[in-house]
Nucleic acid binder design. Structure first.
Lengths: 338, 338
DNA sequence: CTGAAAGCGCTAACAT
DNA sequence: ATGTTAGCGCTTTCAG
C-alpha cells in the first residue's frame, strides 16, 4: 500500500511538502506541486482517511440521519445532499432510523458521531430535548431539513404558505366546502410540516370568510392507503366537500382513488390538490404545490459545508420556494355537485 | 475530549487493558471489565474511529454504491442493509451515482474506497471490466445485489423464474396472446434482470407451444411513464394482447393507466401482472411476483460481514425466493376480447 | 519554499 | 490478567 512516504522518497522531498502539495495548500512551488501530483498518480497513491482524520481532526464525512430512506421526500433529499458532498470531496454516512427507537438512541445518545463526522444533517424528525443537547455538544454544524426548529439551522419550505397556495387555488375555482387530509400533528416525525399545513388550511378558510369545519379534516397518515381511507371518510358524508386539499401527493392520490371507487369524477365532482410534486403526480395529472426536495438536500449540504469553512457562521433558516403546478385534478366548482 | 488514556488513568490500568475491556476481548477479568466500562461511561468516553482505524486497519464501515436512491428497489435494499450493519456496529457510506459518469469514475477508479471501507455492496449496476479490476484490487469483500455476475458474490432473485411464474399465471388463466413490457437489456444498469426476465417471458411462451412475437415486446424503461407509453403502443395494435406482463410494478401500473385511457377494463379486457410488489402494488390491486428487496439488502450485508470474519470465505451466489401475489388485475381470458 | 519532528488516539505484538 | 512499547499514516507547528 503506497503511502505519502513513498511519494516523498520518490520526489526526494519531505512528507510535509508532499502533503501540502497534494492538498492544494499554499507555499509549494508550482513545479514541485506538479511533480508531486504526477508521482502520486504514477505510484497509485491513495490517502488514508483514518490517518488524515486522526492528525487533522477532520473526517471529511457528513452524517445524514433519515427516518426512512424509502419515502420519496427523504430519498430525494439524500440524493441532493450526496451530490454536493461528493462534489466537494465529502462522504455521506447514512443513518436510517426506520422507526426503530433503539437505532435512534444509538445514533443520538451515544455521541457516536462525535469523532466520526464533521457535520450532521437531520431530516424531518423531531429531536428530543436530550437529543438536541447531544447535537449541540457535538460542536459541529447541524442542519435540520424539512422542519422548523427555532435557533437551529434549517432548510425547508414555508409549509403554511404552501397550504395557503393550494387553498387559494381551490377557493379561486369557486370551492367553498373544502376538505383537508393531513397527518398527525404530534409525534417525532415531520413534526412541524403537518401542523403548519393544517394551520394554512384553516387560515385560508377564515381568510375567505368561511368557518373551519373539524368534520372536514381527516388523517391520512401521509400514505396512499391512509389518504384513501381519509378520502372515503370525507366523501361518504352526507355533506361531502367539493374539493379536497391533501398535505402530500401520496395522500392526494389515495383520495382520487377513493373518489373513483365512489363513482365520483375528478375534477367534475371533486377537485383534488396535493403538496410535493412527487414523481407520480405528473403521472396522475395531479394538481399540486411543488416543493424542491432534491434542492433542499443540496442546499442543506451546502449550508453545513459553508459552516465548516466559516467558523464564525451563525445558524440560518433557509426557505425554498414552492410553486403551484396546475394539472387536471382541479376544476371549477360544479354547481350541480352542490 | 476524553480519550482512552483518561479512562486508563482513572481506573489505574494501562490503555491496552482498557482497549481490550471496552472491545469485549478475552483476557480481562470480569471485575476489571465492568470497572472500565463504568468509568468510560461516567467519563463520557467515545472512541475515535480514525485512531482505531489507523491502528487496526479496519474502518467498521461498508460502502453501498447505488445508481439512484430514489428508486423503490434501491431504497429498500439500502434500508435493509443499513439495519444489519447498524446492528453489528458498522456504518454505511452511501455513494449515489445518479447516472453521473464522473461520480461513477470517482468512486470506482480512484480507489477512494481502498482505505476507507471494509467491504462494498454494489447495487444493480454493471461494473466495467476496469471497475471490476478495481473492486478486486480492494482485496475486500464485495457483494453485488440484484444482478448476476459469475464469479462474484451476489444476492438476487431468480429473474428467469420470476418471469416464468408471472407467465404461468397468465397462461393458466387461458391467455395466449401475451405482451411484454420490459427495459433495455443493455446498458450499465439492471444489466442482468431485464435480460433474464425477457428470456423467461419468451421461454414460457415457447413452453406453452406459442411463438414469441417481437411485436408484442415493448420497452417501458422501468418507469411509470415508460410503462404507459409501452402499454399504449401494445394496446393500440389491431391485434392487441389480452394480457401484459410488465417486468416491474411501476411499468405495470403505467400499462393499467394506458388501458384505462383506451377504455379497456382491467381485468375484463386486459390482464396485467408485474414484478416487485412495490408499495403501490397493493394500492392498485396489482397482481405481481413479489421480490424481497429489503431482505436482499439484509442478506447482502450479512454476507459481507460474514466474509469479514471468515477470511477463507468464498463468494456465494444467493437467490432469494419470489412469490406470486394474486390481486385483481388479472383474470381469465374473456372470450369476447378475442 | 521546504524540512524535521512531534504527535493525533488508538491497537497489537510481545513481555511479564 | 495486565503492562510496555511500537507504530498506523498522516498533519502541523516550528525552524530554516
Amino acid at each position: 500500500m503506497t503511502g505519502i512516504k513513498d511519494v516523498a522518497r520518490e520526489v526526494e522531498m519531505s512528507t510535509a511538502t508532499v502533503s501540502r502539495a497534494l492538498r492544494g495548500l499554499p507555499g509549494v512551488s508550482d513545479e514541485t506541486r506538479s511533480r508531486v501530483q504526477e508521482t502520486a498518480r504514477r505510484l497509485g497513491y491513495v490517502p488514508s482517511p483514518s490517518a488524515a482524520g486522526l492528525a487533522s481532526g477532520q473526517t471529511r464525512t457528513v452524517a445524514v440521519i433519515v427516518p426512512f430512506v424509502t419515502r420519496w421526500f427523504f430519498a430525494a433529499v439524500v440524493q441532493g445532499a450526496e451530490e454536493v458532498l461528493r462534489e466537494r470531496g465529502y462522504d455521506l454516512l447514512l443513518y436510517n432510523l426506520a422507526g426503530d427507537a433503539s437505532a435512534r438512541h444509538r445514533v443520538f445518545e451515544t455521541s457516536l458521531l462525535t469523532k466520526r463526522v464533521d457535520a450532521v444533517l437531520v431530516l424531518s424528525l423531531k429531536p428530543s430535548s436530550e437529543e438536541l443537547r447531544r447535537l449541540q455538544q457535538l460542536g459541529r454544524p447541524v442542519t435540520i431539513v424539512g422542519a422548523d426548529l427555532p435557533g437551529w439551522a434549517t432548510v425547508r419550505i414555508d409549509d403554511h404558505l404552501a397550504a395557503a397556495t393550494a387553498m387559494e387555488h381551490l377557493l379561486g375555482l369557486g370551492h367553498r366546502r373544502i376538505g383537508y387530509v393531513g397527518g398527525a400533528t404530534e409525534g417525532v416525525l415531520d413534526f412541524t410540516a403537518p401542523t403548519a399545513r393544517l394551520a394554512g388550511y384553516r387560515d385560508a378558510l377564515l381568510g375567505a370568510g368561511l368557518a373551519a369545519d373539524p368534520a372536514l379534516e381527516a388523517n391520512g397518515e401521509f400514505t396512499f392507503a391512509g389518504g384513501m381511507r381519509a378520502g372515503r371518510e370525507l366523501l361518504e358524508r352526507t355533506d361531502p366537500p367539493s374539493a379536497i386539499f391533501a398535505a402530500s401527493d401520496e395522500m392526494a392520490i389515495g383520495v382520487i382513488r377513493a373518489a373513483r371507487e365512489l363513482g365520483l369524477r375528478v375534477p367534475e365532482d371533486l377537485s383534488v390538490i396535493g403538496i410535493d410534486d412527487h414523481e407520480m403526480a405528473g403521472f396522475f395529472d395531479l394538481t399540486t404545490v411543488a416543493q424542491p426536495a432534491h434542492e433542499q438536500g443540496r442546499v442543506a449540504a451546502q449550508q453545513v459545508l459553508r459552516a465548516l469553512s466559516h467558523p464564525e457562521w451563525k445558524p440560518e433558516q433557509i426557505l425554498l420556494p414552492t410553486q403551484l403546478v396546475v394539472r387536471t385534478t382541479t376544476g371549477p366548482l360544479n354547481p350541480r355537485a352542490c
